[in-house]
Design a protein around this nucleic acid. Structure first.
Lengths: 232, 232
DNA sequence: ACCCGATAGCATCACACCGACGAGAAGGCG
DNA sequence: CGCCTTCTCGTCGGTGTGATGCTATCGGGT
């Protein structure tokens, strides 16, 4: 069997919506290279693991096993990164993974390296090629909100239409008309399941609470921009 | 640096449309394991290569450097596959790549292992986990025809609207109304650029010849099925 | 008690797009 | 010439969406 040997790592783009902003979980590196730089959380694939196993293990380690039930969240593979010089220690291939989580109370794992959710707009200068991986992950998340029901992965088990709309607005950095948005999501079969309860205590008319429905796709999709594609 | 070491390979899903059928390029293995089984073409990543370099090199090797100009074709990364037992020789991670080509004259490379385009419908029992990689590649291609102009990658430099429609019909295994299809593709700015020439010699009214335009996205997308998404 | 602002949710209208379909344009062939 | 085939343009109705108005129902201030 020819070919060089690689160390294989998994790097996670863990996104959540916090205070109406898209945030990514970063860790501060405690060792060289890139010591004290921010980086995506990740780790090497163990002997008995497939890539998804490693990603799930790292996700649980970073966010606490509680949120890892994955009923609510979402985890999917992004791309592979293997430029010859991407890691000065040697040949390392990294598989990017994208995780979407509800806004968890706070992500500081005990004892580990310092970790924090930071708004993606403020992030740059990450270790290795993590800026690229992060950009790919954010773009994937933005694209998937268009044609899937994945936005609900950012929400707690029960949520309102307004909660869901704020997810879209935060991820896309746009404003969406509340009335048209409500028509769209409530008229898509299987997207939202109404619960018996309503929310009280806020201002205004109490909203209906929903749970995620079984639908995964949005047909037709919700388009970010009525963008004119190209010039003839 | 912890972690096991992997051999890293690239496996190609090379698709083309031939005789109104979606075909994939396969090679017959000449060595163990899976000797004499069909497999996706591929190879190991060399010391100075990034993943895309390896994919481009293998694509050129399989199809001849002629078609490899890639102006016409298309090459993109699929997923990574690294199940611990996917290769009996040891730990191997394979990056899938998807290539779309016009129907080349014939792909038999000199001296190499026997290679052939086979209709994807007839393919099963490939070596390793290549059935999975192939399925992922075909599904990616089908999905991308919906919201990109990538179908033109299956066509020669100049082609008619009917050629393009047959690509969609072959990849999706559906029938499309020629009149509505023509309206859709010709009214999308930047998708098709008319040339001065027309085709003569066939039956019926001579069609207009087009080249690919600069557009890459289709807004709104062309939907495969008015599928009812889910049950409430 | 009353009004007011705020949010939720429903209704309406115009427009764009699409599927179904008709019909004309422009070639080959007997 | 008639007839077939295929390309191309048009029409009609249904659906989905953006823009917008209106109503429902709460908290809070006076």
């Amino acid at each position: 069997m020819r070919g060089n040997l690689f160390a294989v790592a998994v790097d996670l783009v863990i996104l959540t919506v916090r205070r109406d902003q898209l945030n990514v979980l970063l860790v501060r590196r405690g060792e060289r290279p890139y010591e004290s730089h921010w980086a995506l959380p990740g780790g090497f694939v163990r002997a008995d693991e497939d890539l998804g196993d490693t990603a799930a293990r790292e996700l649980a380690a970073q966010t606490g096993a509680a949120t890892q039930g994955a009923v609510q969240g979402h985890l999917e593979q992004l791309s592979g990164y293997a430029a010859p010089d991407r890691d000065p220690r040697g040949r390392v291939l990294s598989m990017g993974y994208l995780a979407l989580l509800p806004d968890v109370p706070d992500p500081e794992p005990t004892g580990g390296p310092s970790a924090a959710f930071l708004p993606v707009e403020d992030v740059y200068g990450l270790a290795f090629d993590h800026d690229t991986i992060l950009a790919d992950g954010v773009e994937r998340a933005r694209a998937k909100l268009e044609y899937t029901t994945l936005a609900a992965a950012f929400c707690p088990p029960e949520f309102t239409v307004t909660d869901l709309r704020r997810v879209y607005e935060a991820v896309w950095r746009t404003e969406i008309d509340p009335r048209n948005f409500q028509r769209k999501v409530t008229s898509t079969p299987g997207f939202l399941i109404p619960t018996a309860t309503r929310v009280t205590g806020g201002r205004g008319r109490p909203p209906q609470l929903f749970r995620r429905g079984p639908a995964t796709a949005l047909h037709p999709p919700m388009l970010r921009e009525p963008v004119s594609v190209a010039h003839a």
